[in-house]
């Protein structure tokens, strides 16, 4: 995230959370938080507890964020990628935006339109070898015929979606259950991962084996000498840590996901891609 994107990002975040914007300049924004956001960001649970106890309405804080380097000296909180405040906001977004159900806004009038169900999951794949890297992948699965599409969010980006179903639209019931759709996605991912380069994993595994040999040898010397006391458990502990440090693995974690209802027209278009 670039520094000049942050302002736009914050504006959107506060709008979505219904925080009134009091002042806004290029790279500087002042907002009044809601109680919910105040509790989330201001780290003052005692204040809210106290207000509740004396039966008064607490007053959410007014806060100014500066993301334009030229305004850095002005009153307000300097915010940048990496600053704890921004990461607090990231964290809150990730937990707030985890599950959704949305419907395509077809704009068709007076005509009954069926909407086809898709399961969408956005997945973070972490490759962990000697180091670690991540890949974020968006997958959609057609819950009638089982077709799988990626990167789903990017593909449907131009399409208007909303949490309320549009007039004259109705949904078709899925044939594939969420649980089994997810299982299919995992299988799809497994195939996807098999086709990827695994040099990183081999490298880590070789390193693991080399270090394990040293460890085996080190502890066997003490075994021979009869110095067994406490060494057995320590050896096992070292081995656990070694595995944790170097044994290659891939972690699959769902960032967020939900049901997406798309018109037949859109669905046909997606499947023809």
């Amino acid at each position: 995230m670039k520094q000049h994107d942050i302002h736009h990002f914050l504006r959107k975040y506060f709008d979505l959370n219904q925080c009134p914007v009091i002042d806004e300049q290029n790279g500087k924004i002042t907002v009044r938080l809601t109680e919910e956001l105040d509790r989330l960001l201001m780290n003052r649970p005692f204040y809210w507890e106290y207000m509740k106890k004396i039966g008064r309405q607490g007053e959410p804080a007014v806060i100014t964020f500066i993301s334009n380097p030229e305004l850095k000296e002005e009153e307000g909180e300097w915010i940048h990628f990496g600053s704890p405040r921004l990461h607090q906001i990231f964290d809150s977004l990730l937990s707030q935006g985890k599950y959704t159900v949305v419907y395509e806004q077809t704009g068709t009038k007076g005509q009954n339109t069926p909407l086809i169900p898709w399961l969408v999951t956005n997945i973070k794949i972490s490759y962990k070898g000697r180091q670690k890297k991540d890949e974020v992948l968006s997958i959609g699965l057609h819950l009638i015929n089982g077709a799988i599409l990626k990167p789903f969010m990017e593909i449907i980006n131009p399409i208007q979606m909303d949490t309320a179903i549009a007039d004259y639209c109705y949904t078709i019931s899925p044939l594939i259950r969420v649980q089994s759709a997810y299982t299919r996605m995992v299988r799809f991912l497994e195939t996807y991962l098999k086709e990827k380069d695994t040099e990183w994993a081999k490298e880590a595994f070789d390193e693991y084996q080399a270090e394990k040999q040293l460890l085996d040898h080190f502890y066997s010397v003490y075994q021979e000498k009869g110095e067994k006391e406490g060494k057995e458990t320590r050896f096992e502990e070292e081995l656990v840590q070694l595995k944790k440090r170097l044994m290659p693995c891939i972690q699959i974690e769902v960032v967020n996901g939900g049901m997406f209802y798309l018109s037949q027209h859109t669905t046909d278009h997606l499947l023809s891609l």
Partner: peptide
């Protein structure tokens, strides 16, 4: 509960 689409996109 479900979140708004914009929030979902921002989280992604």
């Amino acid at each position: 509960p479900f979140c708004a689409y914009e929030l979902f996109k921002m989280a992604y």
